[in-house]
Design a protein around this nucleic acid. Structure first.
Length: 305
DNA sequence: GGCCAGGGGATTA
DNA sequence: TAATCCCATGGC
């Protein structure tokens, strides 16, 4: 295993548990030391956070790359490319402090939710991975979603050699690979009725232009992007919103699930059919981030932390 | 628009 | 152990 590490110093608003285990991404596993190991865009890594300023909550984020020495590229610039990749993936360029101040102004509920989930960040995941992951997530819960995604990657993804000490990791399966499969080929992944959605969606995305087509949705009008996603089998309003938020960087997207219906009713007295519209009106361009604070708060409030 | 299948593990009773 | 729930969608 390579010992190469990338460090980001004095990062604020960063809580590994809240970021990696809140249900926005499904490939990060907690280690005994509190760090997280996983794969993003074909890069296997271990990410840890060490507090350096207990007053501000700032600390150092350390990315330890997991790559067999033999397969490590040596080209110039790889280090800075990787650094840029992780900085973007972890959304370190965004000022969450400012967003929190905006969201909590004149909103006591949000103030409590933000205090509860002060270290939440939205990861910038690959659109394709987000699309497939959230199709799998439907009517499902996080531990099982993680198992499904892991089995899918092991069955259909490219092997990443982690070296003898780490074993192997797998990249997320490519669009063309899933598009070439039949539903039965995914039986070992135990996806249930979702297997059919995966294969059909993969074929449709491949025909539309693959990853490049998904990327075009980044800059499209939000309702156009949503409409395009809704045309894919297994994608409804909830999954589409998750892909927009977690895969396409659209912070205004507000996924409404069982928990968010409960939260909007309990906290704001809003009927579930009005949840999305009310959230858009109330939280505007940061509705998606507000959703994460509310989601985390609804699921953990009352429990000791 | 309301109802229900579909798969299966986790959680709760 | 049994019942219920789960970051929903599609089809009738």
């Amino acid at each position: 295993m390579s010992g190469d590490a990338i460090v980001f110093r004095n990062v604020e608003d960063f809580d590994a548990l809240q970021i990696f285990e809140c249900g926005q991404a499904f490939r990060w596993k907690r280690e005994n030391d509190g760090s997280h190991t996983g794969v993003a865009r074909g890069r296997a890594a271990n990410i840890s956070f060490a507090l350096t300023n207990s007053e501000s909550g700032a600390g150092d984020v350390k990315i330890r790359k997991i790559t067999a020495a033999a397969s490590r590229g040596e080209e110039d610039g790889e280090e800075s490319n990787d650094r840029r990749f992780w900085e973007h993936y972890l959304d370190l360029g965004r000022d969450y402090g400012e967003i929190k101040r905006t969201l909590t102004a004149e909103d006591a509920v949000m103030a409590r939710a933000v205090a509860h989930g002060a270290g939440i960040r939205i990861l910038n995941q690959e659109p394709w991975e987000a699309l497939i992951s959230f199709i799998i997530s439907q009517n499902n819960h996080i531990p099982r979603i993680m198992g499904c995604v892991e089995r899918l990657c092991a069955a259909c993804g490219a092997r990443i050699d982690g070296g003898a000490a780490c074993g192997d990791f797998f990249a997320f399966p490519r669009i063309e690979v899933l598009a070439g499969l039949s539903e039965g080929d995914l039986a070992s992944c135990r996806l249930g009725y979702r297997a059919e959605y995966l294969v059909k969606t993969a074929r449709k995305v491949a025909e539309a232009g693959g990853a490049a087509w998904l990327e075009t949705l980044r800059g499209a009008a939000i309702d156009e992007a949503e409409k395009a996603l809704l045309s894919l089998p297994g994608v409804g309003p909830k999954v589409a919103a998750c892909v927009l938020l977690f895969g396409l960087g659209r912070m205004e997207a507000f996924p409404v699930d069982v928990w968010m219906k409960r939260a909007m009713r309990a906290f704001y007295g809003v009927d579930e059919k009005d949840a999305a519209a009310r959230a858009a009106a109330r939280f505007g361009p940061y509705a998606g981030i507000a959703q994460q604070y509310l989601f985390h708060y609804m699921r953990t409030a009352g429990r000791a932390e």
